[in-house]
Structures are given as structure tokens and as C-alpha cells.
């Protein structure tokens, strides 16, 4: 058995994914307040180091890690990030971390008042998935990697003839996005009413399991020779997101930025990758200071209200 780190949900004042020191810290009661993306798409990534004109690849600290208790919304978020970061021109830092990961999911039985994952067609995307059966968990493997892992740690598992039923696979949702065909709604004027309530704080971007936009910038040391080029996450709701040298801003209005986020989530990504970007986790509504309910807005426009 190879030793691996475990990353799993922990709850203090808020719930989030952390590297686990003590198994008792693991908390699986509900979905986490924060997504898991920081473990793959780091909050600060050194892209390369330089000294004068000499450049070199950074060293990367990697640990084989089991990501445990990840819900389907976050797992699909990883799947979407794979589509971006592991395309024809793969991002090496993301890839290295993904190669070293086992995604060990936990099936949700019921969402809260904000999530709506049934509306966005989530896919089975995991190495292993746990289904809570009260006094035991049923484990489903989704990949070869998952099977090998089960075999390696077989002393923790028991073989069973018990099947995972269709009922087990259901997730009860309390919220619904009634359509993902929103192209025709772009010109609808009522977006403006919703967008003007937006504080443009960017919380939705940071809480989203999919959002991965970034800024690249240079850091230099006091010798004024050595330094590094780094990337840090960026938020499309902030005004400066599209600012170019010379100070022109392409999406200057709040409503254009607001619609950009919604349309990227529901339409643009689907056009390119055939998957709806949004995974219905509802964090962008739950974590919005003014609880902007864009799902309700789309439903209303669809119903002609």
C-alpha cells in the first residue's frame, strides 16, 4: 500500500477541502461552502523562474493525493477544467496534479435550497463513488485507476452482491433551472434589472467549481534580475477584467460582465465542449452578498414574465 495524502471536507465556521491530519476531522454531512478547485488550479502558480534572460521550469511539489468525499458538482467541475487544461496544449501544472489524484466521490442524496444539479445534466466522473446506505457505503468504480486503488486497499472494503439501484443514483433537488437554451434571451432587457443589483464583488467567480480565468504577472527580486512569472485567479465580474494597455475596457458595463458569466456557464462552454459548464452547485447564489438568483431569472424569461 502506497502512502497518499487525503484531502477531504472539513467544517469549522465554513466547510472547505483540506489536507487531513486526523480522520476525525472529515465532515461529510453536506456539500462544502468552497469548491475543491484550488488543489488543481492553484491560487498562485509559478509558471517559470528567470534570472536575467535565463528561464527555467519551476520545481513542483507533488503528493499523491486521494480527494475524498467530493460531490458530483465539484467532480464535474474537475471534468470541465480537464477539458480546458488538458486539451491539445495541456497545462503542465494542472496535469501533474491531476495525474497524482484519485477522485473518491460521495453521492449527494438531497441538495439544499440553492443547488440544482439535476438541471444541468451532470456526468458520471469519478474514480470511485460512495453511496451512503445508512450503516454502510456502497462503492462504485468509474475508472481503471479506481479499481486498482480498491484492490490496493482491499482490506478496507468488502465485496458485495448488493447493487446500486437507480434510486440510489437520484439526487433530490429543490431548485430547478427550466432551460439551458438561453441564446435567444441575450437581448432580453430584464437582465439589466438583475445586473444592476450586482455588487461586482466577484464572489461568484471564486466560489464556482468551474471558473478558472487567470492573470499572469511577473515578480522580481531585489537584485532586479531574478524572479518568476506567476498566475493568479481572476474574476470576470470585476471591472478591470478586460482592461487592456491604454486603459480601454471591453466589458465596461455591469450588465455585460454579468451576462458574460451566465452565458459562459450555460451557453458558451456548451458550444465548444458539448457540456454545460455550470454544475448546479448553487454556490454563486448561496455565496452572493445579495443572493442574485440568475436561475430564477432564466426561468422567468423562459416563462415570458
Amino acid at each position: 500500500m502506497r502512502r497518499r495524502d487525503v484531502v477531504a471536507p472539513v467544517k469549522t465556521d465554513k466547510s472547505r477541502f483540506q489536507r487531513i491530519e486526523n480522520p476525525d476531522d472529515i465532515w461529510l454531512d453536506e456539500n462544502t461552502d468552497f469548491p475543491i478547485k484550488k488543489f488543481f488550479f492553484s491560487n498562485r502558480e509559478v509558471l517559470f523562474e528567470f534570472s536575467g534572460n535565463k528561464v527555467k521550469n519551476p520545481s513542483l511539489e507533488l503528493k499523491d493525493t486521494v480527494y475524498f468525499g467530493v460531490r458530483r458538482c465539484d467532480l464535474n467541475g474537475i471534468m470541465h477544467q480537464d477539458m480546458v487544461f488538458l486539451d491539445d496544449n495541456p497545462d503542465p501544472f494542472y496535469k501533474a496534479r491531476r495525474d497524482n489524484s484519485i477522485l473518491f466521490g460521495l453521492h449527494c442524496k438531497e441538495g439544499d435550497e440553492y443547488c440544482f444539479c439535476n438541471s444541468v445534466g451532470l456526468k458520471d466522473f469519478f474514480d470511485l463513488m460512495m453511496y451512503d446506505k445508512g450503516n454502510h457505503y456502497l462503492i462504485e468504480s468509474g475508472t481503471e485507476k479506481g479499481l486498482v486503488f480498491l484492490d490496493e486497499f482491499k482490506k478496507f472494503f468488502e465485496e458485495t452482491a448488493e447493487m446500486i439501484s437507480d434510486n440510489d443514483r437520484k439526487i433530490k433537488n429543490n431548485k430547478k433551472l427550466s432551460t439551458t437554451n438561453i441564446k435567444y434571451m441575450y437581448g432580453n432587457e430584464s437582465w439589466e434589472d438583475l445586473a444592476k443589483t450586482c455588487l461586482s464583488c466577484g464572489a461568484c467567480n471564486l466560489l464556482c467549481p468551474n471558473c478558472h480565468c487567470f492573470t499572469i504577472q511577473d515578480e522580481i527580486d531585489f537584485d532586479l534580475k531574478s524572479g518568476r512569472r506567476v498566475r493568479v485567479p481572476a474574476a470576470c465580474q470585476s471591472k478591470g477584467f478586460t482592461r487592456v494597455a491604454g486603459d480601454h475596457i471591453f466589458r465596461e458595463t455591469r450588465v455585460s460582465r454579468f451576462k458574460h458569466r451566465i452565458y459562459h456557464q450555460i451557453q458558451y462552454f456548451k458550444e465548444r465542449h458539448n457540456e454545460i459548464f455550470c454544475t448546479g452547485c448553487g454556490r454563486c447564489i448561496r455565496g452572493c452578498p445579495v443572493r442574485i438568483d440568475w436561475v430564477k431569472k432564466i426561468n422567468e424569461i423562459k416563462d415570458g414574465n
Partner: peptide, 19 residues
């Protein structure tokens, strides 16, 4: 077209124009 760009390889998301 001209947009803000950081990566050039479809990752940073900054240059997106309606998808």
C-alpha cells in the same frame, strides 16, 4: 480582433468574446 490576453492557448479566459 484585439482583446486582453495572458496565455494564448485558451486557458486564461480573458480574451473571450461571446464564447
Amino acid at each position: 480582433a484585439e482583446r486582453l490576453m495572458y496565455c494564448g492557448i485558451g486557458k486564461c479566459g480573458r480574451c473571450m468574446i461571446h464564447g
